[in-house]
């Protein structure tokens, strides 16, 4: 399979970043960037990346299943990741997470039937001093309140 020209260019550059014979080093970035483009690490993507880096499927699967950001199942268009770790928890992140479940009608790790949203309870995302915090895909939202969370979800619904 081929990826978009932009991603292909990125891969080409990426592999050159590492010493000769150590191209395997590009594996994790390639997986994450491919996932961003395709939506998930389908069997086809995994096989393609394994082939490009001369790795066995198992060697790639070992890595894919290790890292929590990598997924073989499609996520929603808006992947809402709510941090409930210590700093955010102290400021009510657990309640925000419950609220999001209610509002979206899905459990942790779930995807809405229309494929618009998925929800994940995540570990510290490095926004402790501005918590409670969440990420929608890669975008940070700080100082989240119940009202702001509701509005955020409403606004994202409109994005379609």
């Amino acid at each position: 399979m081929t990826f978009s020209p932009e991603l292909e260019a990125k891969f080409e550059k990426l592999v050159k970043n590492y010493p000769e014979g150590r191209e395997r080093a590009a594996l994790i970035p390639m997986l994450l960037f491919a996932q961003d483009e395709v939506g998930s690490l389908t069997r086809e993507v995994v096989e393609e990346i394994a082939r490009r880096l001369s790795l066995s499927l198992l060697e790639v699967e070992e890595v894919v299943s290790y890292y929590s950001m990598l997924t073989t199942k499609p996520r929603g268009k808006h992947h809402i990741q709510i941090c409930t770790n210590i700093s955010c928890l102290l400021l009510g992140a657990d309640r925000l997470f419950e609220q999001a479940k209610q509002k979206l009608g899905i459990e942790a790790g779930g995807v809405t039937p229309d494929g618009q949203f998925s929800l994940e309870e995540v570990e510290c995302i490095g926004a402790c001093s501005w918590g409670p915090a969440l990420q929608v895909n890669y975008d940070y939202h700080h100082h989240v309140t119940p009202e702001k969370l509701d509005k955020l979800i409403e606004d994202l619904r409109k994005v379609q």
Partner: peptide, 27 residues
């Protein structure tokens, strides 16, 4: 110099696990 992305693993903050991850392996 180039950047290299992780993919979700606290353990990779431990220096030797980070190096494994940098080499494309489990952290």
């Amino acid at each position: 110099v180039s950047t290299h992305t992780g993919a979700g693993s606290y353990e990779c903050g431990e220096e030797s696990a980070l190096l494994e991850s940098l080499e494309g392996k489990r952290g």
